[in-house]
Design a binder for these strands. Structure first.
Lengths: 341, 341
DNA sequence: TTGAAAGCGATACCAC
DNA sequence: GTGGTATCGCTTTCAA
């Protein structure tokens, strides 16, 4: 049966174990005939190189860690993970996932135990606020650390981020330029964990402040509790306002999409009655024709993984820290103030 | 620095490497004082057990493979992956992902090379039609094989599935019981890859055939091309019909949700003008109040992973093959035929 | 082009 | 409760 080791293959093929090894990992050092024979025997005996042994010998682990806020099931995390996977897998790496590095308890446990120490060849930190002390702890594992949408690049060997603040500044400015007078930003509290949330809110605030001299606008940030029902909370808050706004600027599509769909049931229809822009260009944004700011976390994951491979191989990055810009995707939930019903 | 090995830790702590090893993996065999000392030294030297060595010694790999159709970014795949991860990670396993085991070329490559042979402790096969020959190939790696929504349990050590056919039978029957007369099932072609698609279509057909004697119904399957725009294709096909149906039965929410949203732009509003039910209870189904058949792939992933752990540990499963039923989630896209406008 | 042998780091059996 | 040591499977240098 099929638990042959390298010695059995060597014996059956009439060669040494060195040759078997080479037939798999350094084919060019073995004659074509010998190689053919070894591989045939190996296949017959269900033999394959045992990567754990290779790992031991080489000191590499062929694993990388990915740390994230919350669950992998969120759109951003899934896309980023898929992007990293798409380049790390072909390169022979598995991804060891650490979800929910969010609560104080989880963080403390992770950063003091450092279970990944000596067990991964690189670490990806996806979109969460990590404090300087934690970065310092991470550095103790002595492997490349790559940040994706981290608030700072301090302590990271490489980072790739979108400029959330600028992106949201652009979105808000777009609504202002359309002539809107009363702009609301429903904002779920970030609890200091998701760095993007804070940066986006700041971008909105900055755009409004900058416009205050030139435009006659009335703007406000509507804080709603964090949680799974944040969109419903925002809905309630909006419906409870003295006067319904003429524009809504959303921190993410997952806020904007439910609002568009549910506000309609209360007689508020976009773009007839109000303009709205989202952020992310996540699923169904196109279906409902939501104007939004697009970011591409899959591409960011790929870029981050390529940086990691370069660093793992001991090379230097030409461009370790990259900042991308979100792009406005004009669809049809926004019209000039003057054209509204 | 910071690359201390077990010998340095032993030396610094004044013990043998056996004791260092035990301090980490068999704490109960070491005196509390010695253990404390060893762990302190280890922390100071940034030492940790090197899992690749453990793996070599034990013959385990602490990796499992997950094979899937298409990308991990689909709702079903993400949920299933997250479920598996939620039990495998705490148990010390990483998941090695193999996406796109769908095209003939990819399948052939995977099943003949069998890159996972000897390199994983278990294999999960998520929701795709795998033929008997392929299962046979998989068995050559001599580890437990666990299927999730596979069309057959033949050759698998364990399986967990929902009864797609019965679920869709229920959905169709529900529409029939509401008195609908003209029921359409928009169906993207499955190309023999996604086993659920075929089973669901069959469930719809069976329900309609069974009802033909008792009810005066007119039903049809509307085949639309596979691809990213399958919902738009279905939309076109529906709008091109001589007479718009009074009920639509969808293979998945990702078909139903765009239809509900876009048909409205053409004057067809649910439930006023037609009833519609989806399948999956995936994101935004609740937001638009879609009546649908719920399945829980996260829970299936967890169950599959628990089965895997049992099998890996050499135990026998009491109940290797489980079939779950999708549950009708009544919301408000369906009303009795008689109450329609 | 191929073979012999040392060694990667942890584990577990066997002594003490 | 602790230490010595053979061993897991592969890679790689050195020799032939």
């Amino acid at each position: 049966m099929g638990k042959a080791d390298i010695y059995q293959v060597a014996k059956e093929a009439g060669v040494s174990i060195s040759t078997v090894s080479r037939a798999f990992t350094r084919p060019e050092l073995v004659s074509a005939k010998t190689r053919r024979k070894v591989l045939d025997v190996a296949d017959k005996l269900d033999f394959n190189i045992f990567r754990s042994a290779t790992a031991l010998k080489s000191g590499q682990t062929y694993r990388v860690a990915m740390l994230m806020n919350e669950e992998i099931t969120s759109w951003f995390n899934t896309q980023t993970f898929a992007g990293i996977e798409s380049v790390m897998h072909p390169a022979g790496y598995d991804i060891s996932l650490f979800q929910h590095i969010d609560t104080a308890a989880n963080r403390h446990e992770f950063f003091t135990d450092l279970p990944i120490r000596r067990n991964v060849d690189a670490v990806f930190v996806a979109s969460f606020a990590i404090d300087p002390h934690e970065v310092e702890q991470l550095q103790r594992i002595h492997v490349p650390i790559i940040g994706i949408n981290t608030p700072s690049s301090e302590g990271f060997d490489a980072t790739i981020s979108i400029d959330d603040e600028k992106g949201m500044y652009t979105a808000a400015q777009h609504l202002i330029n359309l002539g809107h007078k009363h702009i609301v930003y429903p904002c779920s509290e970030a609890a200091g964990l998701d760095s993007s949330i804070d940066a986006r809110a700041q971008g909105f605030i900055n755009a409004c402040k900058d416009a205050e001299g030139k435009h006659d606008i009335n703007w406000e940030v509507l804080s709603v509790p964090r949680g799974t029902a944040f969109a419903d909370s925002a809905l309630s808050a909006l419906l409870a306002m003295d006067e319904f706004p003429d524009a809504i600027c959303c921190q993410m599509d997952m806020m904007a999409i439910p609002l568009v769909l549910k506000l309609e049931r209360y007689g508020h229809r976009t773009p007839r009655d109000y303009s709205i822009v989202g952020f992310d260009d996540s699923p169904y944004a196109d279906t409902i024709n939501l104007t939004t700011m697009r970011q591409d976390p899959y591409a960011m994951g790929r870029a981050a993984a390529n940086k990691a491979l370069t660093l793992i191989s001991g090379k230097t990055l030409y461009d370790p820290h990259e900042v991308l810009e979100a792009q406005l995707v004009p669809r049809s939930t926004d019209i000039p103030f003057g054209e509204m019903a």
